[in-house]
Design a protein around this nucleic acid. Structure first.
Lengths: 209, 209
DNA sequence: GCAAAACCTTGATCTGGATCAAGGCGGCTG
DNA sequence: CAGCCGCCTTGATCCAGATCAAGGTTTTGC
């Protein structure tokens, strides 16, 4: 898709780096590829209420070509490996290479689809449906190989408080619903953070959609 | 931004048409400009619960270049005037004219920003903050000239039931919160659908962000 | 290895918004 | 113009999830 000269140029301008969990990723006008790890995007109301409005899992784009600054903060949830490029280079290449422009557009559109799915969850699903939908989403994104597996096991990259901020609930409700899923035999929980989905079918049935 | 030949080609391939309020707009792979009116985008859960996930006000793009079908339905809320183009032409022109590609991308990104703002409202705002935010959003979009006016008056293009489906509330709560805003002197309501915002500052103060 | 801090769970109680219920108000239709 | 239907409002009651409260468990720092 890219020409040889472009690849060389990209390679020269790129910089790889790693950040620890908890690091805030400044919006420095840079465009990045997420090589490993998970990033959360949060939006705050003035009185401190918080909503997580999206995630970036590896491998994924990160950055806002052509866009004005927004009151959205990006923060690493796990150790994250990034490969960054100056925005100017990407913008120029997108002009020369329609295929790259398509990919940026497609990526934005699928983020939009996801945001709308979560609007539906936030507005119309019950707490227990929200938790089921959330676990399935994480399972499928944390390792793309899981997409169609019938039994999945993974480490949650989020604290209970982050989960609450994503699902529009409180920590206590998240904890209670996880306990309920466990006692219903739908999931297993080890060390608070390690989750096993016994049967994806059963979880899917609890998502409400 | 477009070359003369492209404009001719677009004009030849375009088709203008109007639809009545309530018409569903089929996802026929077409790309349209909304010349007048308001369109709602809805997503349904299998048991009938519904969420409105976005609106299109004139003048605005409508269409999903390069994207697979999604369980999202578009429906005219008012009489709508559209100018449609076959997707193939737009896609081809976007390849030739980077400026057009940028506009498509920018448009998708601002829809994404809006969706995320509403995620925050759905997850973290109270019913009364949701109503205030909603009225302000409608006021600003129904007539772009309103953007900075301090006192605005307009006809709601949505029924109470649509408002409820957008804000994740019930009809009754929407009605009660509107009554409260009226009795607090923040808005005036005539004929159920005609709203006057006495002072945008006061409404802004009730949006929670 | 001990203490403090951070995070999580579970129970008791409360409450914002849902649900149930009963009209009110236009606007069509016959 | 009477009666019906769709839409909206308002009141009474209920309940899912919030808030308040009290530990338990894991991690961190010294």
């Amino acid at each position: 898709m890219l020409k040889a000269g472009q690849l060389t140029e990209l390679a020269r301008a790129s910089s790889r780096h790693e950040v620890l969990a908890g690091t805030e990723l400044p919006d420095d006008g840079t465009y990045s590829n997420v090589l490993a790890g998970v990033i959360k995007l949060t939006r705050n109301l003035s009185d401190g209420r918080q909503q997580i409005v999206g995630f970036h899992f590896a491998p994924d784009f990160l950055g806002r070509p052509f866009e004005p600054k927004r009151p959205i903060k990006a923060e690493a949830l796990t150790k994250v490996a990034l490969c960054s490029f100056p925005r100017t280079i990407i913008d120029r290449m997108a002009d020369d290479t329609p295929e790259l422009g398509h990919r940026l557009l497609n990526h934005a559109l699928s983020e939009l689809d996801e945001a709308r799915d979560w609007m539906t969850a936030l507005g119309r699903k019950t707490a227990s449906e929200k938790l089921a939908s959330f676990l399935l989403m994480i399972a499928r994104n944390i390792d793309p190989a899981n997409r169609s597996a019938s039994s999945i096991s993974f480490d949650l990259p989020l604290s209970r408080s982050d989960i609450a901020d994503f699902l529009g609930l409180t920590i206590e409700t998240v904890s209670r619903e996880l306990s309920r899923l466990r006692s219903d035999g739908v999931i297993r929980i080890a060390n608070k953070r390690h989750i096993s989905l016994e049967s994806t079918g059963q979880i899917e049935g609890r998502c409400g959609d």
